[in-house]
Amino acid sequence: MRIDWVRVAGITVVVSVVLIFSMLVLRSEFPVFDHVEPVEIETTEFLWTYRLIDMIAQAFVLFAAAACCVAVLRVKEKKK
């Protein structure tokens, strides 16, 4: 397989942009619900605090589903 320089450049750009933006985001501070009217919402944190394990496992299920789609839709490689 020949190295596709356009692709390599694309990946590099994406990775660097992700890094730069995550740095910027980490430096700054998001006004988390600073402007919200004081309403008692207790149940909304339920999913995060009680069901964290399920949520993480769910991420893997999504990953597996993506892999399934890729596996079924893969194209045949050309013979070299």
């Binding site: 999913l47 069901r51 589903a65 399934c68």
Partner: peptide
């Protein structure tokens, strides 16, 4: 909240199976 949490996650699985 438990029922809602379960449904939120379960909808995603239904979507995965459909996909």
């Amino acid at each position: 909240p438990l029922g809602h949490a379960i449904v939120i996650m379960s909808i995603v699985f239904a979507g995965c199976v459909t996909a």
